[in-house]
Write a protein that binds this DNA or RNA. Structure first.
Length: 386
DNA sequence: AACAGAATCAACCGCAGAGCA
DNA sequence: TTGCTCTGCGGTTGATTCTGT
């Protein structure tokens, strides 16, 4: 005998959620925590099925969700992860904790797929129109393939690149996995994005944050996390820029050949796309090439390592997000390189943090909100989802 | 200003795996 | 072991918004 049916199909409301429904759902989850979705509609009186409630919560109401424009960093991470994991949006989303799988999926389908297709057409102008047969799950793969299929030498080069990428990215992923895993149980999840992304709900729930226990600690960690996040993004972006600059001023020992080859790739691309008419396209090519570089992926690993060390630096002993269990596996030479890059950049990270750009108005508002003290323990933050 | 087509994204649908009775 | 529900995921849809004419 199984369980009783989760919800009647009759009388179930569909379509967009109203603010009132959001309020009811958020209030309920505030009191009871997420989970046990089957009981949510009956206990709240919402005429929604449990599935719809869960979806609404995870994709919209859940604290910590960032909405709106994707940063270049996020974009690159999505493309890289998609190439590695395929259309595993939930898995990809786990590396972008502030984004939902739905959001990432939508962004991929509406933006990135087009960009990749466009880039494909740059590589194969004579195939214009035929690339439409490529589906989203393989678009990055075909992109990568484009590099390798045309020129044997480039193929070998790309093979090496992929090895480098996978090594570095796996490192990045494994360290991030532990980070994500531990942050799930930590109490330092930022509440900033929640306020910024669902301000309507936040207003509806005014007083929630201000009456919940533990807010002081959270506010500290929130403030610091905001800074940390800014730093992380800056570092990675700077890293990418640096890596591009390093094409001309190679500073990574052992990368000379790769850099030379990359320039060769670039030249070939230029020849192939000689009919393309504007800087936009060449910029796109640069952009996508940067996605394929070892340095790019390396920087992700560096960024991850930095962020963990940064986190301890910034959080100090008070609100450290989670002891980042750095895996101490035997490292390959490539990983050694990644490590050395990371270490050498560590100091720069701290400096970066000290040179934070001024907070935006919203951030300021949020900081004020956070330092208004208020914060106590948010029931949400103890939930496994966060 | 009005319309059409394109773009966006919240929400739905159906499936699969895990867990429970 | 079986049959059922719950939960999560990926693909798709359709309403809304944006943009160009």
């Amino acid at each position: 005998m199984g369980r009783p049916p989760c919800c009647d199909k009759v009388g179930i409301k569909k379509g967009p959620w109203t603010p009132e429904e959001d309020l009811i759902l958020a209030s309920y989850i505030k009191d009871h925590g997420p989970g046990n979705w089957r009981s949510v509609p009956t206990n709240t009186g919402l005429l929604r099925c449990s599935k719809s409630c869960r979806l609404r919560w995870t994709n919209y109401l859940r604290p910590g969700i960032k909405r709106g424009n994707f940063t270049e960093l996020e974009e690159k991470m999505i493309i890289s992860l998609q190439s590695l994991l395929g259309n595993k949006w939930a898995a990809i989303a786990s590396y972008l904790p502030q984004r939902t799988d739905n959001d990432i999926k939508n962004y991929w389908n509406t933006h990135l797929k087009k960009k990749l297709k466009k880039f494909h057409s740059i590589l194969h102008p004579h195939h214009l129109g035929s690339s439409s047969s490529s589906d989203s799950s393989t678009s990055f793969q075909f992109l990568s393939k484009d590099y390798s299929s045309s020129y044997d030498r480039i193929r070998n080069l790309e093979h090496h690149h992929l090895i480098h990428q996978n090594s570095a990215l796996n490192k990045f992923i494994s360290s991030h996995r532990s980070s994500v895993g531990s942050s799930n149980t930590s109490s330092t999840t930022s509440t900033i994005s929640y306020a910024s992304s669902t301000e309507n709900i936040s207003r509806l729930l005014e007083g929630w944050m201000k009456t919940s226990p533990n807010k002081l600690n959270t506010s500290n960690s929130t403030t610091l996390k905001l800074k940390a996040t800014q730093t992380e993004e800056k570092v990675l972006l700077d890293g990418n820029n640096n890596s591009k600059n390093n094409n001309h001023n190679t500073s990574h020992s052992g990368n000379n050949n790769l850099d030379d080859d990359k320039q060769l790739v670039k030249k070939v691309e230029v020849q192939e796309s000689c009919n393309d008419d504007d800087d936009l396209i060449s910029n796109e090519a640069d952009y996508f090439e940067s996605l394929l570089t070892f340095e790019n992926i390396s920087n992700m690993a560096c960024w991850e390592q930095k962020s963990s060390s940064d986190s301890t630096t910034i959080h100090g002993s008070t609100t450290s997000a989670s002891p980042e269990p750095q895996t101490t596996t035997t490292t390959t030479p490539i990983e050694d390189r990644v490590d050395s890059i990371s270490e050498s950049d560590h100091q720069g990270l701290i400096e970066d943090d000290q040179n934070q750009p001024p907070f935006s108005l919203l951030e300021k508002w949020l900081l004020d909100e956070a330092t208004g003290q208020v914060l106590e323990e948010d029931p949400m933050e103890t939930s496994p989802i966060f």
